[in-house]
């Protein structure tokens, strides 16, 4: 399967997940956006040498996955995608920071390795939070929430249009790519001149499509604003959801809950 086909499957997967009837899917998108941003901000605010404090914050994606009927294992595996670039930056910490930090028997772990693991853990958790936000909400509702939270309308309109046309253009690119692969005798990649023709052709077709769309939109009274049926509804459950999670995040950040766990 090619990258582009995998991308299309991923888009369909997100759409299907966001249409589920679990508790998290029924909450207001704004509540989920606010809680996710608060979560990421609190996780990032820990010092680099914190590990157990951050580890406890994995409770949020685990519970959110369950609340939205999504397998946490699936979310965990998907969050690994972000790790290579983080590892590229973080791997220098074990080289430069060699002072011992953790000792258990014969095993000594340096400060650099603790920092590296902490960076990787933050990477995984923050990506999981973002993935669960979109999987439990859907792209369109996240855009509407962003609009309600003050993001300029032209930006949210762009997001919605891009999301709409990604399906169309990815399908077109898949058809073109399939036609090319069926005639290329197993060559996976394009050489630059062929790639330029392929992408240029896709671009010219896309522009033609955009012009047709614009004429169709004008014919239907388009005035620059995309109107959507239905409104986001904020309920007491959303308030409770925000207060509960943000309260827990603050408690987890200001009190060392991991030391309480020593009583285990």
């Amino acid at each position: 399967m090619t990258t582009i086909e995998k991308a299309l499957i991923r888009l369909h997967e997100v759409d299907a997940q966001s249409r589920g009837d679990f508790l998290l899917q029924t909450l207001d998108a704004r509540a989920k956006v606010i809680v996710t941003i608060a979560y990421i901000a609190v996780v990032l605010s820990f010092s680099l040498t914190s590990f157990s404090g951050i580890l406890l914050f994995a409770v949020f994606p685990i519970v959110s996955a369950s609340m939205s009927g999504i397998s946490y294992g699936q979310v965990f595996l998907r969050s690994m995608i972000a790790l290579p670039f983080i590892a590229f930056v973080g791997i220098f910490n074990p080289i430069f920071e060699r002072e011992p930090m953790l000792v258990a028997g014969d095993l000594t772990i340096s400060r650099g390795w603790v920092e590296f693991l902490s960076i990787m853990l933050r990477g995984v958790l923050t990506v999981q939070a973002a993935l669960l936000l979109i999987a439990s909400t859907g792209f369109q509702r996240v855009c509407r929430a962003l609009g309600c939270l003050g993001v300029p309308q032209i930006f949210t309109t762009q997001l919605m249009l891009i999301y709409r046309y990604i399906y169309v253009l990815i399908n077109e690119a898949i058809r073109m790519d399939r036609a090319r692969r069926s005639r290329s005798y197993g060559r996976r990649h394009y050489d630059l001149s062929m790639w330029a023709t392929f992408v240029g052709q896709l671009l010219v077709r896309s522009v033609g499509r955009a012009e047709r769309i614009h004429r169709a939109m004008l014919a239907r009274g388009f005035d620059g604003h995309v109107r959507i049926l239905g409104h986001l509804r904020w309920s007491s459950t959303d308030t409770a959801y925000c207060i509960l999670w943000i309260g827990l995040f603050i408690a987890g950040r200001f009190f060392d809950l991991s030391s309480v766990l020593k009583f285990l």
Binding site: I4, L161, I162, R164, L169, I170, D177, L203, A210
Partner: peptide, 15 residues
């Protein structure tokens, strides 16, 4: 909108 989607699709085609 369409060119944004185009860039997205074009990024999936490697040379």
């Amino acid at each position: 909108g369409v060119l944004g989607a185009f860039v997205f699709a074009a990024q999936m085609i490697n040379f």
